[in-house]
Amino acid sequence: MTNNDPGVARALAAAGPPPGMAIFQLPTGTYETPAALAFQGGSFRDRRQFAATAVLVQHPEGDVLIDAGFGAQAEEHIRMLPSFRRSPHHLGSTVSEQLDAAGYDRTRLSGVILTHSHWDHVSGLDSLDVPILVTDEELRYADHNRGDRVFRRVAAGHDVRGYSFDGPAHLGFPASHDLHGDGSVVIVPAPGHTTGSVVVLVTVRPDQRFAFIGDLAWQLEGVTHRVQRPLLMRILADSDSARIRQDLARVTALSPYMQIVPAHDARGYDGIPLLVPGRTTSRAS
């Protein structure tokens, strides 16, 4: 796949985002990890502040969040983790608090798309009363993941909606799920970090496109340098390192066309506005 790949051009042109779409970042805190544990070639002297950021995608047919960040009970959630997974962290405002502070109309929020079920992506569900959109495979993964029980805690009482990839191959990925049927929010499988991980491709306008890649890579160097996590972290954190290599190549090929956003790299969110009072759009009629 090259920068002038006609297949990519056709797929991008087919997206028809409606007027009234908008996108916002909702940072909820950070935790500290050395770059040496984040990607091959990183340094222990380079201390990275891993982002825990949700994204609000506004669409006339219903807004969605991508992941949920840290929640109101994040400290308790951290205590539920194995000790080796607890990192120095800073908690900010939750997604719920940011929505309220911006005067957001919560009746517009139709669900939360999870890139996967690890605690730092789902903690904020503890204060969001909306459906959870997650792959059937990830639900099975979460049910058997004994090292991270947070999803099972925060999902209790929610409307959990599993979905399948009922659409065709899309932008190099073997299948897809078009959330609104217009190409504006397309979910594709990327089951390497967890067995049900996904990438969410968002087209706000023809000149504003994003690939939210979850934990396919923890930092942008995974894409720009085409490197995976160090061996130890692959063993501890990933389900299928071969699939991660394959999907990193797919995402790298898309980088000329769209902004690549690893969930934990604050640089990936550059240019995505914060949600502040008066900035939310009105639902199109």
Rank of each mutant, 00 (worst) to 15 (best):
P60E: 13
A51W: 01
A52R: 00
D63T: 10
A68M: 14
R47W: 10
A68G: 14
G29E: 08
P27V: 03
L56G: 07
F70T: 00
T53H: 06
R47I: 15
Q58C: 12
I66C: 00
E75F: 10
T30D: 08
Q49S: 09
V64D: 01
G42S: 07
A38C: 14
H59P: 03
L56Q: 04
G42I: 06
A38F: 04
E76V: 10
G29D: 04
G62F: 08
R47Y: 00
F39R: 07
G62T: 05
D63Y: 06
F70Q: 03
H59V: 11
G62A: 12
D67H: 14
E75Y: 08
R47F: 05
H59S: 09
F44S: 11
H59C: 12
A52G: 08
D67Y: 08
S43F: 00
E61P: 07
P60H: 13
S43W: 06
D67P: 01
A51P: 04
G71T: 05
F39K: 02
A38R: 01
D63W: 03
R45F: 15
G29A: 06
Q49P: 06
Y31G: 04
T28G: 02
A72W: 07
A54F: 11
E75M: 13
D63E: 02
V64K: 02
E75S: 15
V64L: 15
R45N: 11
V55I: 15
D63H: 13
E75Q: 14
A68Q: 11
H59G: 13
A35H: 11
F70R: 09
